[in-house]
Amino acid sequence: MSYWADFDNIFSFNKKYHYESKTVELIVSNRRVLDNQLFADRLLGLLGIKGVTKVYPPKTNSDLRSLVDQIVSSEFDIHHKQALIYYILKDCRNAQGAAAQFANSCHFPEKYRLFIEGVWHMDRLDFRGAIEYLAEPSLIPTFPDEILYTLTLPHIPKHDDSLAIAYYLTAAPPLATEKVQRAYFETLARSGVTEAFFFTRKYDEFHRHSFFVQLIEFVLKTSPGQTRSKRAMELVGLPLDEDEEAWFQESLLRGAASHFPGAKDTLMMRCFATGKMDALAAELETLGGKKVEGLNWDDLRESVRSSGATPAQ
């Protein structure tokens, strides 16, 4: 057996070592926060280890020995095995330096170390610290969509949309599933409606339409207030092409967005903002609403028509 694969050599600082109860509790708690799957779980799964949530975190020295044995006896290449051992040594809070010593003794490649540092910090919910490693240009992205999706989760502690955007710009995740696409696009929309709109134009017609409709729904489901007003004004002022204009009307009149409060108001605002009064669909003719400071849409529409004025562009 290689020196690096022997448990007593790996844990020479304490051959009877076992995880502290606080460490076990923290790992289990963080797993729940991360939709019941740690990045450690994914790595162990790649090695073919079954029932990862039962074997990690190990609670006793015997459990730890069994886990290490499963790792070193797996059929994956040496560096993948060493990566998992390095991760486990990072868990050893009362054995600082053990992970670094292990990496030096087995000449662990730096790109693997950076990646493990990154996902270890992800599993510890230290996302800013994780990005410092995972955004390293020399890394070959591993689990890029999973990392990006985790960074978009609004319920994670100290959630910061800028971290997800920074990771996307650095690692260029493929956004291979609809779940990841929608999660990242909503992150972009929170950052700015206009920026999200131009992002849609990078994609084919199918995805472009899907993103555009999501953007409309995102704005309409924003809670009433200054933020919603600002987003709505950005939305109605977007430089839409012919297809996008058609999608805009269809979504607000007959699509899923039509069920949100303010859907027809938004379409009316678009018509006024662009000066295309003739584009008002028949469905809008019934739009009135309560008066605000003595004015409603009926008043405004008739005023514009009777005066022949054209709203400002």
Rank of each mutant, 00 (worst) to 15 (best):
V236Q: 00
S138M: 07
A171M: 11
D126K: 07
P137Y: 05
E302Q: 13
E132F: 08
Y167A: 06
K59D: 13
V55I: 13
E205M: 09
S223T: 09
F76T: 10
A166Q: 14
T274S: 07
E293K: 08
L280R: 11
F102P: 03
E75A: 11
D243R: 12
F39M: 10
F13D: 11
F13I: 14
E195P: 05
I10F: 04
L295S: 09
A279T: 10
D6W: 08
I27P: 00
I10L: 06
P173Y: 10
T266G: 02
T222E: 06
K111P: 01
G275C: 04
L267T: 09
S2F: 15
K179G: 13
I88R: 00
Y112D: 11
S307H: 12
R93Y: 15
V72R: 00
L44D: 00
F198G: 08
L153G: 02
G288L: 11
I165C: 04
V119M: 00
T266R: 01
I140S: 12
I85L: 11
R231T: 03
V52A: 04
W120D: 03
M1K: 05
R128Q: 15
D204H: 06
T170P: 01
K22N: 11
H207P: 01
E217C: 06
N61L: 09
H79D: 13
L38T: 02
G129Q: 01
I10C: 05
P311H: 03
P154R: 08
D41Q: 02
P157I: 02
L151H: 03
Y19V: 05
S21W: 05
D299W: 09
Q214R: 05
T310L: 09
D161M: 14
T142C: 07
R124N: 14
A99D: 12
A273R: 10
P261S: 05
H79M: 13
R190P: 05
V304N: 03
G97R: 08
D91C: 13
V52G: 03
D126M: 09
A171I: 11
K230V: 07
A309G: 05
F39C: 04
H107Q: 13
V304T: 12
R208D: 04
R182G: 10
T187D: 14
V193P: 00
A171C: 13
E285W: 15
F102T: 05
S251Y: 02
L235E: 03
K276I: 02
S191V: 03
E245C: 03
A176W: 02
M122A: 00
L238P: 10
K202H: 12
I131R: 01
Q249W: 12
D35R: 07
C271G: 08
R228Y: 15
P174C: 06
I27K: 01
L188Q: 08
Y149N: 14
Q313R: 12
S29M: 12
